[in-house]
């Protein structure tokens, strides 16, 4: 139950884009993050809430 609570609603994912690049997001289930490849940022999901704040996002090294 607790695990399911933390997961993000798939319908919410369809609604969202990266606020910076407006590009598509992919969901990384392992880290529970939303990945914006264009902006090279990973947005965290906390308690099922996508945190689409650039200040909170993790930079992805590629």
């Amino acid at each position: 139950m607790e695990e399911r609570m933390r997961r993000v609603d798939p319908k919410l994912l369809e609604l969202l884009v990266c606020p910076l690049s407006k590009g598509r997001l992919s969901y990384d289930a392992e880290r529970n993050e939303l990945i914006s490849e264009k902006a090279r940022l990973a947005y965290p999901i906390r308690d099922g809430i996508p945190i689409m704040l650039i200040s909170e996002a993790r930079k992805i090294e590629m």
């Binding site: 609604l15 969202l16 884009v17 990266c18 910076l20 598509r24 809430i49 996508p50 689409m52 704040l53």
Partner: peptide, 11 residues
Amino acid sequence: IAAPLEHVPLA
């Protein structure tokens, strides 16, 4: 959804 005021995170 948490997002800044100036960036609309909607598809």
